[in-house]
């Protein structure tokens, strides 16, 4: 699924309950991460649920995968993967994730005060893309 499909799917949803139900569905469909990858280094700071993130470089592109023990956060990770994963370093650095989430009606989750680990995850992906861009 690409981002425009995701926007379409969300546009058919009415109200928070449907949006959350869909987000939870996306979360449940997110493939589980290998336990071997759930290392302290891959753990993203977040007060309430545990969030892990692994990243892989392929040429000038950055692929990443995430997982959380909370379904809604898994759903948010799934959305973020659709938006960012596999894009070029430049694209990732330039992407306005907040605007994307705004279009889906999920922007509140990007607030640094939400303490769901998700804000740190976006920051970490962007920082990695920015670092890798310098190596090109």
């Amino acid at each position: 699924m690409d981002f425009s499909e995701l926007v379409d799917n969300f546009s058919f949803l009415d109200g928070w309950e449907d949006r959350y139900a869909y987000l939870i569905e996306l979360g449940k469909a997110l493939p589980a991460m290998d336990d071997a990858d759930k290392t302290p280094e891959n753990k993203v700071d977040g007060c309430m649920s545990q969030v892990w993130l692994t990243m892989r470089r392929d040429g000038d592109r950055l692929f990443f995968r995430g997982e959380s023990d909370a379904f809604i956060v898994r759903g948010l990770i799934a959305v973020l993967q659709i938006i960012l994963s596999g894009k070029t370093f430049d694209e990732i650095v330039a992407e306005d994730v907040e605007a994307d989430f705004n279009r889906l009606g999920l922007d509140a989750h990007l607030s640094p005060t939400r303490r769901n680990g998700f804000f740190s995850m976006v920051a970490r992906v962007k920082a990695e893309a920015s670092r890798l861009r310098e190596t090109l």
Binding site: M48, S49, A70, F71, I72, V73, N116
Partner: peptide, 19 residues
């Protein structure tokens, strides 16, 4: 459900709990 999932649904219902 994870406590965070629970709290996020409760929040939408206007209910404040600690997680």
């Amino acid at each position: 459900a994870h406590p965070q999932d629970i709290a996020m649904i409760l929040d939408q219902e206007g209910i404040c709990v600690r997680t």
